[in-house]
């Protein structure tokens, strides 16, 4: 199992992501800087969270136009697993690798708290470690997590099991349509999610509910 973590200026959750992948897979991921136009041969590409380019223009907009993202798109088209968390999710949307957009939180406030997530589709490479409908805890920390898609896109996503995580038990922190917290593409190899599973993988974090995502993913790509 080989993983790469993409790095852009302003991302700040890359070290957490690298630590989570290293801890669970026993192997440190490669890191790839934004200016690279090719990627090493890996099974998993992760775009971590943060505030690439200061969220200028729109969150993720500038980062999504960097050379490395063309390489990520090429690898995604080959079927390589791609996961974007928080700003990484925003970048995947801006790059057109996932449908829809993430807008300013309905409250207009930055939210940093724990939410409950329902595993809305456990039949993906990313969620196979969970039971269908399982409720897990997960931290969120974002200002622009308000997922939006037009009615047609939303119907297609819902119809094909594209919604993999939903905010549960009234914990939607951002006004996201249909309580959407994470989605996967039709092929099932590109996941974007706002919550941070990498921050809940060992007891010192206060819980381990994020661990099954990495165990399922890293185990299967081994």
């Amino acid at each position: 199992m080989k993983a790469a973590v993409i790095q852009l200026p302003g991302l700040n959750r890359d070290r957490d992501m690298i630590a989570a992948i290293t801890r669970i897979s026993g192997r440190a991921p490669l890191t790839v800087w934004q200016t690279e136009s090719t990627l090493p041969d890996v099974d998993l590409i992760v775009i971590p969270g943060g505030f690439s380019y200061g969220d200028y223009l729109r969150c993720g907009a500038i980062g999504a136009r960097m050379p490395v993202m063309r390489a990520v798109a090429e690898q995604a088209a080959r079927g390589v697993m791609v996961m974007g968390v928080c700003n990484g999710f925003q970048i995947l949307l801006e790059a057109g690798l996932l449908p829809g957009a993430l807008m300013r939180n309905a409250s207009l406030k930055f939210v940093c708290r724990e939410v409950k997530l329902e595993v809305a589709n456990a039949n993906t490479a990313f969620t196979r470690g969970y039971r269908p409908g399982q409720i897990i805890r997960c931290p969120v920390a974002h200002h622009d997590g308000n997922y939006f898609a037009d009615a047609e896109t939303l119907a297609r996503l819902e119809g094909e099991g594209g919604v993999v995580f939903r905010y549960a038990e009234g914990t939607n922190p951002n006004g996201s349509i249909n309580d959407i917290a994470g989605i996967v593409n039709a092929r099932g190899n590109v996941l974007g999610m706002m919550p941070h599973p990498e921050n809940l993988i060992e007891p010192a974090h206060g819980g381990t509910d994020g661990r099954a995502l990495f165990e399922g993913l890293l185990g299967q790509a081994a």
Binding site: L57, A61, E94, P99, G100, M103, F148, D150
Partner: peptide
């Protein structure tokens, strides 16, 4: 189309 606007929204 390519940068200034996100035509989804």
């Amino acid at each position: 189309e390519r940068l200034l606007a996100n035509t989804v929204i």
